[in-house]
Amino acid sequence: MFIHLGENVVVPIDEIIAILDGQLYHSSTIVQEFIYGQRKSKEIIEISTTMKTIVVTIHDIYFSPLASMTLKKRANQLFDPVVNID
């Protein structure tokens, strides 16, 4: 299964390691150091000019314009199918 991160970018859900709120990048030196250190081994993909969420995958790191809660809801919907009885 895949999850849509914004624009035309989708990634396999089983490759996602972490979904971090983008505010952490600006407020946490640990997250900044992590991203800086990962630039050596992973590609940083800025999906748009607005970054609300950092999505860490096995191969890349994405700066997504979608809110972390939106991505969490999308991921949960993939694993929790809703039974609709009319």
Rank of each mutant, 00 (worst) to 15 (best):
Q32F: 04
D21P: 09
I13C: 08
I47L: 07
D86Y: 15
K72N: 10
L66W: 04
L20G: 00
L5T: 03
G22V: 09
E46N: 11
I35D: 08
A67W: 00
N76R: 13
F2N: 15
Y25V: 09
T49Q: 14
L24E: 05
Y62V: 01
G37I: 02
L5G: 03
A67G: 10
Y62T: 03
I45P: 01
Q77P: 04
I58P: 00
L78Q: 13
L24T: 07
V31L: 15
M51D: 01
T49A: 14
D80G: 08
L66P: 07
M51F: 06
I17E: 11
M1Q: 13
K52G: 02
K42V: 05
Q23A: 09
L24P: 03
K73E: 15
Q32W: 07
I47E: 05
F34D: 02
I13F: 04
V55F: 01
R74S: 11
Y62M: 02
A18Y: 12
M51T: 15
K52H: 14
E33W: 05
L66D: 08
H26A: 10
I35P: 01
T70V: 13
D86T: 13
N84P: 08
T70M: 07
V82E: 14
V9G: 01
G6V: 03
E15V: 01
Y25S: 01
I35M: 13
V10S: 12
E7S: 06
S27K: 15
Q38W: 08
A18G: 00
L20T: 12
K52M: 10
N76S: 11
I17Y: 05
A67S: 13
F2Q: 11
S68K: 07
V82P: 07
S28I: 08
V56D: 00
D80E: 15
A67E: 08
T70W: 07
I35L: 11
I19D: 02
E33I: 01
H4I: 00
K73V: 10
T53L: 07
G37P: 02
D21A: 06
P81N: 10
H59G: 03
P65T: 05
M69C: 09
G37N: 15
R39W: 02
S68I: 04
F63L: 11
L20R: 04
D60Q: 12
